[in-house]
């Protein structure tokens, strides 16, 4: 178990380091003149060479690549990704400033997505009407197929402009959170629902369900008592997909609803080629991904005795 934990932790740390290196290569090494990225492309030709050299020196671009790399890596380890080119604020500060907004949005969307997914799975496996089952089972793939920007705009059109129930833009008050939350929850719920429908079906067909039925338990008792837990655990295996959907979805959702957040910050950072900010965000996202996956890897054996047994066998 300890070896397993050490291996997984090592891999997570490697992923974070490699994400840093990858973004360094992409953003600082590959562009022929990285300082060019710091200027507006339209004004690039009008900037005198002295100014460019000055800027390059400020950002350390005139030093050998390896020196730059280790300097940046060293500072990144201390949590310092340099200053944002556009705002001049430290990258860490800029990201942490908007992080709570995105966390609130993602956490809410995740909870709603889980509710939708359970709703779909329970309806699909408990209904006796084939047409309803087919309809409900086709929902998850529709949920991942509808572009986030379209569902966002549709919700905006109907609930903000036509009905006026919720504000269309901004990030103040709980009412402004409702539409973005629903928008983001839809694509996130798709894969979870698909997995839950599959697991619920498989669990309901398994031997212990038949035994419990034979011993007189009602279907509801079995579903709430056993099937629910057994079918839910594997949802942890698609944490990665869920996380990716949340990040990608929040970039678009925050853009559509003009909300402050990491997603929108990413979009502006990319638009203005704010290299240090982009690197900071990518490393932060990769680190969160690695951390969440590590947590799942470490917690999963505790929750699933079968896996614990396999691990114990392997360790011997």
């Amino acid at each position: 178990m300890l070896r397993y934990a050490a291996l997984k932790t090592g891999r997570a740390l490697f992923v974070v380091w490699a994400a840093f290196t990858l973004t360094f290569v992409l953003l600082f090494v590959l562009p022929a003149n990285p300082e060019d990225l710091l200027f507006d492309p339209a004004e690039l030709n009008t900037i005198p060479p002295e100014v460019r050299e000055q800027v390059a020196a400020n950002y350390g671009f005139d030093e050998p690549v390896l020196v730059q790399y280790f300097e940046r890596l060293g500072r990144a380890l201390a949590g310092d990704f340099g200053n944002s080119v556009q705002s001049g604020k430290p990258v860490t500060e800029a990201v942490l400033g908007v992080l709570p907004n995105t966390l609130l949005l993602s956490a809410g969307a995740l909870a709603l997505a889980a509710l939708i997914a359970y709703g779909i799975a329970l309806t699909a496996t408990s209904t006796r009407r084939p047409w309803l089952r087919n309809l409900v089972e086709s929902l998850p793939s529709a949920a991942v197929s509808v572009p986030v920007f379209l569902s966002g705009i549709l919700l905006l059109q109907v609930f903000a402009f036509k009905l006026g129930w919720f504000p269309a833009f901004g990030s103040d008050g709980p009412a402004s959170l409702v539409l973005p939350l629903v928008t983001l929850a839809v694509p996130v719920s798709g894969p979870i629902a698909q997995l839950l429908v599959r697991r619920f079906t498989a669990e309901l067909e398994s031997g212990y369900v038949t035994t419990s039925r034979a011993k007189g338990a009602t279907r509801e008792q079995i579903v709430t008592g056993d099937v629910f837990r057994n079918a839910s655990l594997p949802a942890l295996t698609i944490t990665g997909i869920t996380f990716g959907n949340l990040i990608a979805g929040s970039v678009i959702t925050e853009t559509v609803f003009a909300r402050e957040g990491v997603g929108r910050l990413t979009q502006t950072a990319i638009n203005t080629l704010d290299v240090p900010l982009v690197q900071g965000i990518v490393v932060l996202v990769a680190a969160s991904f690695a951390f969440i996956n590590l947590a799942v890897d470490l917690v999963y054996p505790l929750l699933d005795p079968r896996l614990r047994a396999t691990l114990a066998l392997e360790a011997r």
Binding site: V15, N245, V282, A286
Partner: peptide, 21 residues
């Protein structure tokens, strides 16, 4: 291990970075 790294960065974010370069 390299694949792990690419999987750790959500594809839309990675695509945005690549397109910006």
């Amino acid at each position: 291990r390299v694949v792990d790294v690419f999987l750790a960065i959500p594809s839309l974010l990675l695509a945005m970075v690549v397109v910006s370069v």
